[in-house]
Design a protein around this nucleic acid. Sequence first.
DNA 1: CAGTCATATGACCGGTCAGTCACACGATAT
DNA 2: ATATCGTGTGACTGACCGGTCATATGACTG
Lengths: 228, 228
Amino acid sequence: MPTRTFFNLPEDKRRLITDLAIEEFAAHTYHKASLSRIVARAGIAKGSMYQYFAGKFDLYLYILELGARIKLEAIDKAVSELGPEATLYDRLMAATEASLKLAETHPRLYAIGMNLLRETDKKLVSRVMERLGPKGDNVFLDWLQWAVKKGDVDPEVSPLAATYMFSAVTTRLGQDLADGRLTLAQALPLLRQTLDILHRGLRPRAEAASGGAGRADETGESDKTDRE
Amino acid sequence: MPTRTFFNLPEDKRRLITDLAIEEFAAHTYHKASLSRIVARAGIAKGSMYQYFAGKFDLYLYILELGARIKLEAIDKAVSELGPEATLYDRLMAATEASLKLAETHPRLYAIGMNLLRETDKKLVSRVMERLGPKGDNVFLDWLQWAVKKGDVDPEVSPLAATYMFSAVTTRLGQDLADGRLTLAQALPLLRQTLDILHRGLRPRAEAASGGAGRADETGESDKTDRE
DNA sequence: CAGTCATATGACCGGTCAGTCACACGATAT
DNA sequence: ATATCGTGTGACTGACCGGTCATATGACTG
């Protein structure tokens, strides 16, 4: 974590350093990101940086924590706004949508997260995970098992495979968004259609015959189904 | 491409250089991979490397081309061994399985491909794509549309979303394999279950009532990374 | 006034890198 | 024997890196 000195800094300077660091880590992976470049752009001495942070990794962690906090807050907020009878797909859609929207509201922080995902230095990644804690990942599995009990999901289907699919798709959506291969306006319908396929793929066979799949496929949106 | 000098080299030496380069690019991303390290390990002078290749990028391309050729051959072979009445899922399973198996038979070349997928330097990636040409990519879409016509796939479902899911899952499987988070013995069942969910998610609603469709799969899949 | 403390500085260190170049060597041709 | 050619070499260049440290500044204390 940053030193006391850093927090004693005038707001402006602290912001400047933080912003430039975010830009740097968004534009480059950890090892290619350069402290020298940050201090040069900030117009401060290299040594000053070492009065504020223990080193490159410390600065990196500080920035990552900023991003992680924002992301968790956004997801928590979106999910908690759902009614208690929201279905599995409502929840998945709400949580993922909130997460993907960050690519527009906080593009650089979002890119930093995606860069971490691409990181090849395993030691670095584990050092990060050590201090950043849990990945809200098994949440899906919990929700899924709960949906199986409710009879919304075919117990025959491998929950692991379902989780894997969901995770693969949402991660990929995030990367494509961060890299500009998709816009949010493209990603959200894609997410909805994807969840729709997953929904059809998971529901019990018996239920499929009846028209409706019962609860919920609409994911919190009241608008039309979007076919494309 | 390599110089004539490189191809005039005694087989042993050429192999040594090639192998060490493969190791280097498998262990590090392009920018972190080091020519200096390669020549040191090979016991040759730095200058010699520049007699064989125009530079780092040239060497990289040469290695990538080796890997691409092997991959295409493996997939072509697997798909061509299928009967003409093989279903969409047979084909997808056969092609993807063949592709994933390369993670075991050519682990380092496989890792290099995965590293390229993670590359953050867009300019580098586009320079590579420029010369590596097409990614057997829209094959999925072609097969999918053919399956729709046959009535195996619900025409209501977004083919783009289906393609996206398939691509996201197979790419992720490849990465997890390359990084050792999954073994082939874990990845193949996961692939089959995933395709099964996709199958259920795509088939026409009417058909869903009947038991059928089922798991005729056992192999198969297709397509490789579809990065664009 | 002197002393102390938090803060700021940038030259400097040891390291790594891709790429270059003047030179060396041996074989073949003239 | 002289010239040319293909090949090999490794010291060197210039650039950049993260991190250190002796030194400077200025505010506050006594």
